[in-house]
Amino acid sequence: MSRFDLTKTVMRQGVWQGVLTARAGEGDAPEIAVTHLGNPVAGVSVTAQDAPGRWALRVPIPAEAVADGVQTLLITDQASGAQLGHVTLIAGEALGDDIRAEIDLLRAELDMLKRAFRRHCRETS
Rank of each mutant, 00 (worst) to 15 (best):
S2G: 07
R3Y: 11
D5G: 10
T7K: 14
T7I: 10
K8T: 10
K8H: 13
K8M: 05
M11R: 13
G14E: 04
Q17E: 14
G18Y: 05
V19D: 06
G27E: 14
G27N: 15
A29Q: 09
A29F: 02
H36Y: 14
L37T: 13
V41E: 07
A42P: 06
V44I: 10
A48Q: 09
A48S: 14
R58T: 09
R58K: 14
V59P: 01
V59F: 04
P60S: 10
I61S: 06
A65Y: 01
V66L: 14
V66R: 08
A67G: 11
D68G: 14
D68I: 04
D68W: 00
V70F: 06
V70R: 15
T72F: 00
T72N: 06
L73I: 05
L74T: 14
I75V: 14
I75F: 01
T76Y: 00
D77S: 03
A79D: 13
S80K: 02
S80D: 03
G81H: 04
A82K: 01
L84Y: 04
G85F: 09
G85A: 12
V87I: 15
L89H: 06
I90A: 13
I90V: 15
I90G: 09
A91Y: 01
A91G: 09
L95G: 00
D98L: 12
I99A: 03
R100H: 02
R100C: 00
R100E: 08
A101L: 06
E102N: 03
D104W: 00
D104V: 03
L105F: 02
L105I: 01
L106P: 01
R107Q: 13
A108Q: 15
A108K: 12
L110Y: 12
K114M: 10
R115F: 07
R115L: 15
R115P: 00
A116L: 13
A116G: 07
R118Y: 05
R118P: 00
R119G: 02
H120Q: 13
H120M: 10
C121A: 15
